[in-house]
């Protein structure tokens, strides 16, 4: 179980070595999420169309280790962008991965950039 989590560590913009071209902008729902496969990783990507921001995080929920976060609802808690896991509604900050309504371990977050009509996710390896 921990081997599953250990695949995912947060990447900061300045640590990015690979910008992975995931998919075209219009393959993501507006104000929704989708899952991207990169090597053996599953990454949840969210399109906050309302405020023109994109976020990415691990797809696995640290609560029960299921690959579901990309199917969660997004929104904000006092301005912090967040995703609510579809299983038991644990919510996580998409800025720093922190579990906002409990004390689960933080999830890993990844930088996203949009270039041309494509969504890129930043990885350090």
């Amino acid at each position: 179980m921990n081997s599953l989590l250990s695949k995912y560590t947060s990447v900061k913009e300045e640590e990015v070595k690979v910008w992975f071209k995931a998919a075209s902008v219009d393959s993501f729902s507006k104000d929704g999420g989708a899952c991207v496969k990169y090597k053996d990783k599953q990454i949840a990507v969210f399109n906050f169309e309302r405020k023109g921001e994109w976020y990415a995080c691990q797809n696995v929920c640290p609560h029960k280790m299921e690959m579901v976060l990309s199917r969660g609802m997004i929104g904000d808690a006092n301005g912090i962008p967040k995703v609510a896991c579809p299983m038991h509604k644990k919510t996580f900050s998409l800025e720093n991965g922190e579990n906002l309504n409990g004390d689960l371990d933080a999830i890993a977050t990844y930088p996203v950039k949009i270039q041309g009509n494509f969504v890129y996710i930043g990885f350090s390896e």
Binding site: L4, A22, A23, S27, V36, K37, Q42, M65, M67
Partner: peptide
């Protein structure tokens, strides 16, 4: 399951 692949959830 994925936007960029036809694969299934391998978990």
């Amino acid at each position: 399951h994925f936007v960029n692949s036809e694969e299934r959830d391998d978990n």
